[in-house]
């Protein structure tokens, strides 16, 4: 292991750089990998589980709706906000593999609204609900791509307006 301690300035504390031996490269580097094209292999595996991901996504959107109802009833309840946030994050993770990119866009904006410093969610229940409705319509594919894009833009703009600190 290589270490050295440069002194940036006399007044500064020493910074120690440590370069641990690269055991992972030594262990894994090979001329003959067991999987020749890991990327193609993983893309194929994901496409094979697309149906499963879609089902998980749909179930999670149902959960999101339940959490939204609980949140709307008690917006200042920390547990309700947290459950809604976790559900939105789960949807962000599943939307693309589940074949619903629009849900990813709406979930991203919702997460921004719910997690930005300032805790803006409880004061903007209507906007939170609009996001959840947008995610549900994305799942049901009831909007044309053009309408979905306009809706995403509108929700993102409204969210940014709220979460951006006023100078």
């Amino acid at each position: 292991m290589v270490t050295h301690k440069p002194m940036a300035k006399e007044a500064q504390r020493p910074i120690e750089f440590i370069t641990p031996p690269n055991v992972l490269r030594a262990k894994l580097a090979t001329d003959k990998p067991s999987i020749k094209n890991p990327l193609a292999s993983a893309n194929k595996a994901l496409s094979e589980m697309a149906h499963e991901c879609t089902q998980w996504l749909h179930d999670e959107i149902d959960q999101l709706h339940q959490h939204r109802l609980a949140f709307a009833a008690s917006p200042k309840k920390k547990a309700a906000l947290e459950a809604l946030t976790i559900s939105a994050m789960e949807i962000k993770g599943l939307a693309t593999p589940g074949g619903c990119e629009d849900a990813d866009v709406f979930a991203t904006s919702l997460i921004t609204l719910l997690t930005s410093p300032g805790n803006h969610g409880p004061a903007n229940v209507g906007l939170v609900e609009a996001h959840v409705d947008a995610i549900r319509t994305a799942r049901d594919k009831t909007h044309s791509p053009k309408v979905a894009a306009a809706l995403a833009e509108e929700l993102r703009a409204r969210t940014n307006e709220i979460v951006t600190p006023k100078s």
């Binding site: 999987i35 890991p38 292999s41 993983a42 595996a45 589980m49």
Partner: peptide
């Protein structure tokens, strides 16, 4: 999901 990808990597 992550497991599936990792398995596919080998």
């Amino acid at each position: 999901l992550v497991r599936k990808i990792l398995y596919a990597f080998g």
